[in-house]
């Protein structure tokens, strides 16, 4: 994908086939290169519309339109007008139009639109999600949470929605609920290390002796299955948790303390190692900041 972007950026003339290829890939991978899509897709639609296959043309239109909502209003208006002529009655268009209303800031109109769609078919997923985003955009987080909970009551396998709910709970600082969402995410996607890491963070924030131990375990697990060679975040988390456990000074057996110390040492060593490696590669300026970090880590030894 990055190679493709480089190729696109390096081309001198407008090569519509390459652009189409890029757009196709972006659609498939569901990545949000809004600015790039506008930069290349918008002129494509304007000037080369007859050269594109009809079915794909509308897909590209939708894609450029959605990107336009992000960063270029003219493009989105241009696209929605073409789409309106063709599909003014279709459901997909209605949702797209609702998003247009949202971007303009007329949330009530959008809400009405989605409400009408849901009245006809309450099992439609998209308008339900859009309603949540409206509440979020209006900064009405309690309602967004409520709506999202209603949605998850039925569609309980939706990873995206659980992630969103977790973020919302974190915003409102209800950590135990966020923890529930993260556990749900772990169940749904057990190979993703970031969920364990995040869950550990939340557990650390909640605190309590048992919680801290759980956090330590989750940090370790995140390190174990992480695809990155040295996940600095998780190491740092592990170090902090172990130190905190030590500072609580609960009466426990020898073995437990030993394990805690070992983990603490392990995390510290790994951190120092990775930062030292980085020190060798980085420029002068960043070198200083890394030095301070290293000092901080070493200070924790005490």
């Amino acid at each position: 994908m990055e190679k493709l972007i480089q190729k696109l950026n390096s081309q001198k003339d407008f090569n519509y086939k390459k652009v189409l290829h890029f757009l196709r890939k972006a659609r498939k991978s569901k990545l949000r290169y809004s600015e790039l899509i506008i930069k290349y897709g918008f002129p494509l639609i304007k000037n080369y519309s007859k050269k594109i296959d009809k079915e794909e043309y509308f897909e590209v239109l939708e894609q450029v339109y959605l990107a336009g909502l992000d960063c270029n209003k003219d493009a989105s208006i241009f696209c929605i007008q073409i789409l309106k002529e063709k599909f003014s009655t279709s459901l997909r268009f209605k949702i797209l139009y609702g998003m247009f209303l949202e971007s303009k800031g007329s949330f009530e109109k959008a809400k009405n639109l989605y409400g009408k769609i849901l009245e006809k078919d309450s099992t439609n997923v998209l308008p339900q999600k859009r309603l949540v985003t409206i509440f979020k955009a209006q900064n009405d987080i309690p309602n967004a949470i409520k709506k999202l909970n209603q949605y998850l009551e039925v569609y309980m396998l939706d990873i995206e929605a659980w992630e969103e709910l977790c973020e919302l709970y974190l915003q409102t600082e209800s950590y135990s609920k966020a923890r529930f969402c993260l556990e749900e995410l772990i169940l749904l996607n057990p190979n993703e290390s970031k969920y364990y890491d995040k869950c550990a963070r939340v557990l650390y924030t909640i605190g309590g002796f048992d919680g801290l131990i759980l956090a330590r375990q989750y940090f370790s697990h995140s390190i174990k299955i992480s695809k990155i060679v040295n996940p600095i975040d998780s190491y740092l988390g592990l170090l902090m948790t172990t130190n905190k456990i030590e500072s609580l000074k609960k009466k426990t057996n020898q073995k437990f303390l030993e394990l805690n110390n070992n983990l603490s040492k392990f995390a510290k060593e790994k951190l120092i190692e990775t930062y030292q490696k980085q020190q060798e590669n980085e420029t002068q300026k960043e070198n200083e900041s890394i030095k301070t970090i290293l000092d901080l880590i070493k200070d924790e030894k005490k």
Binding site: T123, V154, Y155, M156, E183, I186, L187, P190, H221
Partner: peptide, 27 residues
């Protein structure tokens, strides 16, 4: 419609339950 929603919910619940059995050791 509510029936439809209910069936969707049930299907999802079944899947969730299998997930819980498969990955339950992680929580």
């Amino acid at each position: 419609q509510t029936n439809k929603q209910e069936t969707i919910r049930e299907m999802q619940a079944i899947q969730r339950s299998t997930r819980l059995r498969l990955n339950g050791n992680l929580i």
